[in-house]
């Protein structure tokens, strides 16, 4: 599996039909109706998380928790090895005549290192997977999708009836309809 989610980019896509909603209940109903009619929704853009949309657009369950666990194991191993190398192997340090092996007093540093490695490792994968990169060109379909509008994007294929899709969007409460093709926006309603 490629790490970057290619579905997140709008580059090199066919014509995209865009419906704009204001109310999340209407959007949920519309997205459900579109999917039930066999129309594949490419993505839905919202200014806040709307629960249930990920299941409607059939987004795959994230593997982030597993990655976090893997990063934690790496962090724990690195810290344990580092402390053992420094305190036991390279320069055995006699502290109060305590034994030169793992002691509970190592655990705070092991814990902190594990948390640090997990948080940054997982976040690195999160940014990578979601194409979140400093300075990247933002691909937004509607300037208000980060403010107060909920935007549904349907990528067309040669065997799709565009008119039927637009009619269904309109019937389900879309306030505006647009299309995007090769960087050109056309207002349809």
């Amino acid at each position: 599996m490629a790490i970057v989610d290619k579905k997140l980019t709008l580059r090199n896509r066919n014509k995209i039909l865009v419906g704009v909603w204001e109310d999340e209940d209407n959007l949920l109903a519309a997205a459900t109706a579109l999917t039930a009619a066999g129309i594949h929704i490419h993505d839905i853009y919202t200014p806040y998380p709307v629960h249930g949309l990920d299941r409607i657009i059939n987004a795959r369950r994230s593997k982030l928790a597993r990655i976090a666990f893997f990063c934690a194991l790496i962090g724990l191993t690195l810290m344990t090895t580092m402390i053992w190398y420094m305190s036991v192997y390279d320069w055995p340090m006699n502290v109060g005549n305590k034994p030169l092996r793992f002691t509970p007093s190592w655990s705070p540093v092991m814990f902190e290192g594990t948390v640090l490695c997990t948080a940054f490792g997982m976040s690195f994968f999160f940014f990578w997977r979601n194409r979140l990169v400093h300075g990247i060109k933002n691909e937004i379909l509607d300037i208000r999708q980060t403010d107060n509008r909920l935007v549904v994007a349907v990528e067309t294929t040669s065997n799709m009836d565009e008119k039927a899709i637009l009619t269904m969007m309109r019937k389900n409460g879309a306030l505006e309809l647009k299309s995007f093709h090769k960087g050109v926006q056309t207002i349809l309603k």
Binding site: Y45, S62, S123, N130
Partner: peptide, 28 residues
């Protein structure tokens, strides 16, 4: 703001992962 927003679009896929990472970071 464009630089620090990292190209955020509000995609449903990103929101789902964003909520998960927030939860795991909270757990950590």
């Amino acid at each position: 703001y464009g630089f620090f927003s990292m190209g955020w679009t509000g995609s449903t896929r990103t929101w789902a992962r964003y909520e998960l990472i927030s939860l795991i970071l909270a757990g950590l």
